[in-house]
Design a binder for these strands. Structure first.
Length: 420
RNA sequence: GUGGGUGUAGCUCAGUUGGUUAGAGCGCCGGAUUGUGGAUCCGGAGGUCGCGGGUUCGAAACCCGUCAUCCACCCCA
């Protein structure tokens, strides 16, 4: 048997309603905030990701699905959506369009990691990117969209954490100060963090080991190394969130794994989600468009993980959606079976959802299938009914039955199709 | 890439110190009901015990290897 690839999952029909619910909510909220859908390729030239995400990040170093095109060009399945969106923004010169360029996207992303709870090799994200607006209100708008969307889905136990990364120059000032401090306490750090002091000192702040947390609690803070402009900007973001009542908590430890973030960075985490507890995250990336040879363009965005939202989605939200009435056509006998095919088609043509199981040859088998398929009504049509020119309409809930004319069934049936 | 758990019927799982024909519940099919579903009762079908090797008179069980899957680390949505 040929099986699916490790970490790549099928979404069977039982699960797709849950996903559609999330997609529809995402579209609804993106629309309300004035974001427009962009559809970008799921693969790009490898250098796009290497340059945007950062050559020394884990994603680029060991998690990308990279392969050669026939002419030898190195291509990569997208590990995230921002790089491709920025590439499209530059390539189509969207900076010249005189209205705000605010995009959203859906789709699969690919990272070669070991699967675990809430993490797959092919996973799905909804993301938004807001280009060209260097105003705290753009950050607030993006964060608000994220927060309203998640709340609309009824997700519980969410926390919005936010931090100010400042500009790259601020971090260049801060990093040596942090490293000096960490080196003084290096023997007491976990082995991971001892390594991180060299490779990525800011990540030590994010470590969950209690001993490391005690040390980093007293470490110099990035906030104290920031210059005046980022401080003012970030204060504006927080003021905006306060004004529209988005609850957040400041987390000076929050540093993102991707190189392109600056200023505002945020993350929504959930309890009851296992070890991978980030539902969505994002931030400002003012330097990225420039890095990819576009015009200097401020930008801010986020991405959320569909799989993680789906895990948190309460059943009540799923059952709240209205149930469509489906008519089952139980056609049996030589003449009934033939007449049933026409009835099915006429019902469908008049806008009624109608199904049948052609394997069933007895009324008993048909009714059993109607029940299993959750049909509210069954049209019973055997040879006897063909001869009298009628059908029997059975309400599967009340068990009430009535005769209807076969010739004008799709009209006669309409007023009766209420389950109440 | 590293560590741990789990692989037995369609699904969830039992299976004693190694012992003869591998079980249960749910589901499925049929009958009780010859043209009326769900409930009940009765009957039935369904297994490469993940795979390969080894130990043994005898392996689902013990050993080695391998694969799959889950969880965790790393890292991230």
């Amino acid at each position: 048997m040929i099986k699916g690839i490790k970490g790549v999952k099928d979404l069977l029909p039982e699960e797709t309603p849950r996903w559609r619910l999330i997609e529809e909510a995402a579209r609804r909220w993106a629309d309300r905030y004035g974001f427009h859908e962009i559809r970008i390729p799921i693969f790009e030239v490898t250098t796009l990701f290497a340059r945007s995400i950062g050559a020394s990040t884990d994603i680029v170093e060991k998690e990308m699905y990279t392969f050669q095109d026939r002419d030898g060009t190195s291509l990569t399945l997208r590990p995230e959506g921002t790089a491709g969106t920025v590439r499209a923004y530059i390539e189509h010169n969207r900076a010249a369009v005189p209205v705000p360029q605010k995009y959203f996207y859906f789709g699969p992303m690919f990272r070669h990691e070991r699967p675990q709870a809430g993490r797959l090799r092919q996973f799905h994200q909804f993301g938004v990117e807001s280009f060209g607006i260097a105003d705290p209100r753009a950050d607030v708008e993006v964060i608000a969209l994220l927060w309203r969307f998640l709340n609309d889905l009824g997700l519980q136990g969410l926390t919005l954490e936010i931090n100010n990364l400042g500009c790259p120059a601020d971090r260049d000032v801060y990093r040596p100060r942090l490293v000096t401090y960490l080196q003084q306490h290096e023997p007491h750090l976990c082995t991971n963090c001892q390594r991180r002091v060299e490779t990525n000192p800011l990540r030590v702040l994010d470590c969950k080991v209690p001993e490391c947390r005690i040390i980093t609690e007293k470490a110099p803070r990035l906030a104290d190394s920031l210059s005046e402009t980022p401080r003012t900007y970030f204060a504006g973001v927080l003021r905006g969130l306060d004004l529209i009542h988005i609850p957040y908590s400041l987390n000076h430890r929050l540093v993102r794994g991707l190189d392109y973030y600056n200023l505002t960075t945020f993350e929504v985490t959930a309890t009851n989600l296992g070890a991978q507890n980030a539902v969505g995250a994002g931030g400002r990336y003012d330097g990225l468009v420039d890095t990819l040879s576009g015009p200097p363009t401020p930008a801010v965005g986020f991405a959320v993980g569909f799989e993680r939202i789906a895990m948190l989605l309460p059943e009540s939200v799923l059952h709240a959606s209205p149930v469509q009435v489906i008519v089952y056509v139980a056609a049996f006998g030589d003449e009934g079976s033939i007449a049933g095919l026409s009835v099915l088609e006429k019902l469908r043509a008049s806008g009624i959802a109608a199904v049948s199981d052609f394997r069933a040859s007895t009324l008993k088998a048909h009714l059993r299938q109607a029940d299993r398929l959750g049909c509210g009504f069954t049209v019973i049509l055997g040879d006897d009914e063909v001869h009298t020119g009628t059908v029997i309409l059975r309400n599967m809930v009340t068990k009430g039955q009535s005769d209807l004319p076969l010739s004008s069934l799709s009209v006669a049936i309409q007023p009766l199709l209420t389950t109440s």
